[in-house]
């Protein structure tokens, strides 16, 4: 039996509504509740659902940006607690807003270098940066440029390169296809497929449309109103949807066009 890379038990997380005077939370509002699932190494899992359903919050919780209220996240069998400072996290998240995730004051080379190991010489660091740029099929001349000079698709790739430079074991992409033009979506899908096979990555994709993740995902989970209502291999979900929402999402994907 393959040991799962990531296993989540009964995860509940949310945000305080009205923070109290002394800092104690009051009126805490859960955004995700009771989510449990497991992912095996090398798998690609997609979480799909309507807006506001909690998908992004799940991604944030897994990546360590949102402290869960209850539940356990196990990574390689060990509980995932507050991440050690000073070291890149093993679970890297690529935010939906790629431009916002890049420091406008650092050029692309510096941005990617932030993720590289700290004890490298300048030469070694530069080599690493070039290596990761190449991996995401961006030209080396972008090293000197600043985020404002890049297109949306390029910024997204820089974020991916940066995340890869952190040598993660699990990569989460939050709505990577949503804001993009069709051709960029397709190119990104292509890139992810390529990375999956060459880098042996485990991926989690967050999306609101089943169509965009169909070709990449091994398993699909449907998240709505904070709950995980279905979690099946892709083919099974597409051919035998169990819930009404899944059926609605399948219809919206217009697969029979």
């Amino acid at each position: 039996m393959v040991e799962s890379l990531l296993s989540v038990e009964n995860l509940t997380a949310g945000y305080p509504c009205t923070p109290g005077l002394i800092g104690k939370r009051q009126n805490y509002r859960p955004v995700i509740s009771g989510i449990s699932f497991a992912i095996n190494p090398g798998e690609t899992v997609a979480f799909v659902g309507p807006s506001g359903g909690g998908k992004t919050s799940l991604a944030m919780a897994l990546a360590g940006f949102l402290k869960p209220e209850s539940g356990i996240i196990r990574f390689r069998g060990e509980k995932l607690d507050d991440q050690a400072r000073g070291a890149p996290r093993k679970i890297q998240l690529i935010f939906q807003d790629a431009g916002g995730a890049l420091n406008p004051h650092l050029n692309i080379g510096a941005a990617i270098a932030e993720a590289c190991a700290k004890n490298l010489s300048k030469r070694e660091c530069l080599d690493q940066v070039m290596h990761f740029l190449q991996m995401v099929e961006l030209s080396a001349e972008l090293i000197e440029r600043y985020p404002a000079q890049l297109s949306g698709g390029q910024k997204q790739r820089v974020c991916i390169a940066r995340a890869l430079a952190a040598k993660p074991e699990l990569l989460i992409l939050d709505e990577p296809f949503s804001a993009q033009d069709l051709l960029i979506q397709v190119q990104l899908t292509d890139l992810l497929r390529h990375l999956k096979s060459t880098q042996k990555l485990t991926l989690i994709l967050i999306a609101h449309d089943l169509l965009t993740v169909r070709s990449l995902a091994d398993r699909v989970g449907i998240i709505a109103r904070g709950h995980l209502i279905e979690y099946e291999p892709t083919a099974v979900l597409f051919s035998q949807p169990r819930t009404a929402l899944t059926r609605a999402l399948l219809e919206a994907a217009e697969l029979d066009v």
């Binding site: 000073g86 916002g100 995730a101 420091n103």
Partner: peptide, 26 residues
Amino acid sequence: QALYVKAAQGLGVSRFRILTAYILPY
């Protein structure tokens, strides 16, 4: 609270570097 500061924290960027290269320019 900016996204790029959060991203940097996720990458393990040191506190000092965040202050000098992320907060200070802003």
